[in-house]
Simulated assay, not measured.
Amino acid sequence: MTSTPKHIERDRLFTDIQYRFDYVSQFIGFTETDQEYIRKSAPVVGGLVPTIVDAVYDKLANYDVTWGHFSQDQDGMPQDRESPAMCSRNSSDEPPVEMNSEVIKFRKVMLTKYLKKLVTSEWNLSYLKYLDWVGHIHTTTPLKKSNINVDYIHCNALFGYLSGAITGILSKCDEWDEDTRDGIVNAYVKFFWVQNDMFSKYYVKDRVLTEKEKAAVAEAKRENEDNVRRELRTESLLNAVVGMVAGVVIGMYGFKHIGCG
């Protein structure tokens, strides 16, 4: 333990991607050496990507609670409303998405790109924004238009599965000497905790919204209030019309009754 703890600006952890990454990485010990180990694994992991992707989707297909999310629209996905394979299936009465559908093919391509970026990208701000974007698109948050919203429990479980699957494969690889292999395995374990954090930031309640997000929340609240007011005005108008009609009917009935007397 150092004599003087390093000061961390709490609010900045939620507004500055680089600052958050630096803190989490330093805390868990994810260093430039680990990043180099991940790049060193590229020749092996790159060849395993199709197998890893298929294994992930086989795992997701085992549970209706995870597979059901693939009936929802995702950012970046081409939307052809005339094609049954590409349309949103939000009704529980509709059949589940098939493994060979265009929806799953698209998402497999996205996961393939993700894994290939992992072993080839430089760890700069641009890549950190990409990792943050991957977390963002899976949640319903301000500034995001797509419908997909995956509960965090499934994201966390998937990272646990991915971490175990990849490190399990790499730990048996004889491509490297023992020290290099151990370094690569440890680097992947640390990475998945870093990526998991970039998901959890969009779920935890202690997150601090950016000014843009605050404005989006306020706008959404105003729109909701406007909708409520419109509904109340419509309801009031309807009640007034009903009251007027009832009054006319009652008046006519009373007039007729008096005439008959």
Rank of each mutant, 00 (worst) to 15 (best):
L118V: 14
E235T: 12
I169W: 02
S236R: 08
D22R: 05
Y202D: 03
K116L: 15
K212V: 01
F30E: 00
D174T: 01
P50H: 05
G135A: 05
L209V: 07
F255D: 09
T140P: 02
D177H: 02
A61H: 12
I137Y: 05
R229G: 04
V44K: 06
S163R: 03
D54K: 12
I250H: 01
D179G: 06
V189D: 04
V44H: 07
T31W: 09
K116Q: 15
M1R: 13
C173Q: 01
F21S: 10
W193Y: 13
F70R: 05
K105Y: 10
R20T: 09
G261H: 06
K108V: 11
L143P: 03
L48V: 01
V208K: 10
F14C: 06
R89E: 06
Q35C: 09
R20N: 12
S25L: 08
H136K: 15
H257T: 14
N239C: 11
C155V: 14
T141V: 15
W176Q: 04
W67G: 00
M252K: 11
K190E: 03
G76I: 00
A187P: 10
G251D: 04
E98K: 15
A220K: 13
P84V: 09
T140L: 14
K6Q: 13
M77L: 10
F191I: 02
P78A: 13
S25A: 15
Y152A: 14
D11C: 08
R81V: 14
K40I: 00
P5F: 10
D75Q: 09
Y203C: 06
E82H: 14
F106G: 10
P5G: 09
D206V: 06
C260I: 15
K116P: 05
T51Y: 09
C155T: 13
D182W: 08
D206F: 09
P142D: 08
K105C: 13
K116Y: 13
V185H: 04
V45M: 12
E225H: 12
A61K: 14
P5T: 08
D93T: 14
E219T: 04
T167Y: 04
R207F: 03
E235D: 10
G29A: 08
S121G: 02
T33M: 05
Q18T: 12
